[in-house]
């Protein structure tokens, strides 16, 4: 068996990895809640956002925090444009087309990032260097920061959807678009705004992940694991998403430790097992229509 320190260390890595997944998954859930589109390119938005932060904070010498803010604004604008120029036109098309479309965004973003910033990994300087000792265990500051930021953003988003007029309007337009139009909700603008918010979240996630994974054109694939986590929890519910992502994040380091042969696949096994038992995830968000 493992000594207790190792268990705690692996557990903490799991929690921080899970929070990172949750941070990415929030963007997926947001877009899904508003438009029922699953943006498979979200991981690539994150990668691209990370690079934009790098450009503003180091290329233009703004420093990390101002660079992050400017990058968020730029990416938010990009997200707004993606919706208003492309996604708006394809409402009501078959799901396969929409999936393949968002996957295509991923391809475009990845090659664009490669062309602009090169194909080799780069590092981003953040204020979260160094380590902290907690109860005899050393923890990386960047991992603690991920957990913190995730908690803050979750609370912010949750209260946005539950408390503000705009959040409620977004939920309404996602449940019945036509009815929302009739109620005078500016559905189009709201949906574009949701894409903007999701792109901002992706940028923040990219900046937070950069010290852990380094910036590379392929880090977008983390998005698939985040998606798996969100589905395990029950897509569309923010608490469910966090639960699922934490679950996957915690299981991963342990299974990699005990079964090195299936390194990196345990998340998908968990996903299949959970969906086999509970096809709608742990916290159910879909309802059968009463005929």
């Amino acid at each position: 068996m493992l000594p207790i320190e190792d268990v705690i260390r692996l557990g903490f890595i799991g929690i921080s990895q899970g929070s990172a997944y949750a941070l990415i998954a929030l963007g997926f859930v947001l877009i899904y809640k508003a438009t029922e589109v699953v943006n498979f390119a979200h991981g690539d938005f994150m990668m691209f956002g990370g690079f934009v932060v790098l450009t503003f904070s180091e290329g233009f010498g703004l420093g990390f925090w101002p660079g992050l803010v400017v990058a968020c604004l730029a990416m938010g604008l990009a997200g707004f444009l993606v919706d208003s120029l492309i996604m708006r036109r394809i409402i009501g098309q078959s799901q396969a087309s929409i999936f393949i479309l968002t996957v295509a965004f991923g391809f475009i973003l990845r090659s664009a990032a490669g062309m602009i910033w090169g194909w080799s990994p780069q590092s981003l300087d953040t204020p979260f260097d160094g380590e902290t000792m907690v109860a005899g265990i050393t923890l990386g500051n960047e991992r603690i920061a991920i957990v913190g930021i995730t908690i803050v953003l979750c609370i912010a988003l949750y209260s946005f959807f539950a408390r503000t007029r705009m959040g409620v309007a977004m939920q309404a337009s996602s449940q019945n678009q036509l009815a929302a139009y009739y109620m005078g909700i500016p559905v189009r603008r709201l949906i574009s705004l949701v894409w903007a918010i999701a792109a901002i979240l992706a940028t923040i996630a990219g900046a937070m992940m950069a010290p852990v994974t380094q910036l590379d054109t392929s880090i977008g694939f983390i998005g698939i694991k985040a998606l798996a986590g969100a589905i395990v929890g029950g897509f569309g519910s923010i608490p469910g998403t966090i639960l699922g992502c934490l679950l996957i994040g915690i299981i991963e380091p342990f299974s990699d430790y005990f079964f090195p042969a299936i390194k990196g696949v345990s998340a998908y096994i968990v996903l299949l097992v959970v969906l086999f038992v509970r096809p709608d995830g742990l916290i159910v968000q879909t309802y059968q229509k009463k005929a």
Binding site: R89, V103, M115
Partner: peptide, 22 residues
């Protein structure tokens, strides 16, 4: 001469198809 041109064009073609000829 850019590396990664193929996936980019690949993506653009898909987007054009899905948007203009579903």
């Amino acid at each position: 001469q850019q590396a990664g041109l193929e996936p980019m064009l690949f993506g653009v073609i898909i987007v054009l198809f899905v948007v203009f000829e579903p």
